[in-house]
Write a protein that binds this DNA or RNA. Sequence first.
DNA 1: ATATAATTATGACACTGTGTCATTTTATTG
DNA 2: CAATAAAATGACACAGTGTCATAATTATAT
Lengths: 204, 204
Amino acid sequence: MPTDTFYNLPNSKKEKIIKAAQKEFARVEFEQTSIKNIVEEAEIARGSFYQYFESKEDLLKYILELHTGDIENKIQRILISNNGDIFSLFIDMYNSMLEECTNESKFKFFRRIIENIKTSQGSILESGKPEKILEKNKNLVNQTNLRIKTEEDYKTIIRILESITIKAMATTFQFKSKEEAKKEYYREIEFLKNGILKNKESEA
Amino acid sequence: MPTDTFYNLPNSKKEKIIKAAQKEFARVEFEQTSIKNIVEEAEIARGSFYQYFESKEDLLKYILELHTGDIENKIQRILISNNGDIFSLFIDMYNSMLEECTNESKFKFFRRIIENIKTSQGSILESGKPEKILEKNKNLVNQTNLRIKTEEDYKTIIRILESITIKAMATTFQFKSKEEAKKEYYREIEFLKNGILKNKESEA
DNA sequence: ATATAATTATGACACTGTGTCATTTTATTG
DNA sequence: CAATAAAATGACACAGTGTCATAATTATAT
């Protein structure tokens, strides 16, 4: 969260800072970015930065929120329009991430952010994790056609979908074409839906 | 790869350096570790470090190899003993990772490493990725009971299993008990085997 | 044994980036 | 137009980096 001082800044100055930061965050992974580069690019004094933001993390969080908006709200809307289909939800999220990358610089920025999400998801985005949001909004999800037997199964399903989707987002940036990447993701979702093993029911 | 100079060092000195490095790598995530701390703990001169290793990355790679050994070989052995069952393979890998954490310091070290694997898997471990090894050793995998239709399906299955397993390893460290974590992982594998949707075959 | 060469060890050095803070500049208000 | 509050500034002390000339050690040849 930036300080009031930052919010009070004239828009042009705010935008200049945001643009400089995005450029820096797109350049290298988070740990390698430097505040020095940001303040130089934005043409503000070093001390001013600390008057606007607590830290580099603070700034990144702010910029991410600028892009993602209210994720919970978005998820709710998608779920309602999809009749609670959880697979469509994740596919929609995946696609809307791709659509966010409208120009070269946004593409680079998102690429850097998503590729560097840690397996453990410790830090940033924590509160906006699909897992937590979907736990809260369980009632919006149509569970009748899901293989849910125990209390824990719902959570497990969300975790699987989340892992695969985030991973797919990251690898999308490495594919030659977006189309190929999409196909791969859809293939993965199909396996999740129907299972990797043949003859599922005949075992029973 | 350390230099010959390093390999020629008396074992006690080598061990002291490795121990110091492990401690530092366990302390904070890779980007935050400092060579300064390592050389101080190991009681060697700063310059000496650079005579032994090219960089911090170099050192970490070396230490990881010390722990993991030849992964390809391991995978081959497991596959043969499991009659090519790909699910058992991943479960075995998961469990053997857990078993590696015999004491507190190893636990901390592994935790740090695994939690900080990037979604995109860019850097370290690249060559030892299960995906690549299993592509090479396709013939050892029993594919008869897998729902493989097209050429790409095999790769997709491996990717899914790999994502879920790595993610499970990472979250294992956050669970209260190892037993609970294992149960969650097994539940995930069951979903992958049989699918999240009910009535798979009846659709056809 | 000892001169010579090769290997290994050392820490001072120049550099880059960090967060702070006393001071200056600009804006607001009575 | 003071007086006061808010915002901007960059010098400063720190911490860590990789290098390199020099010193210490070890190996080799005579």
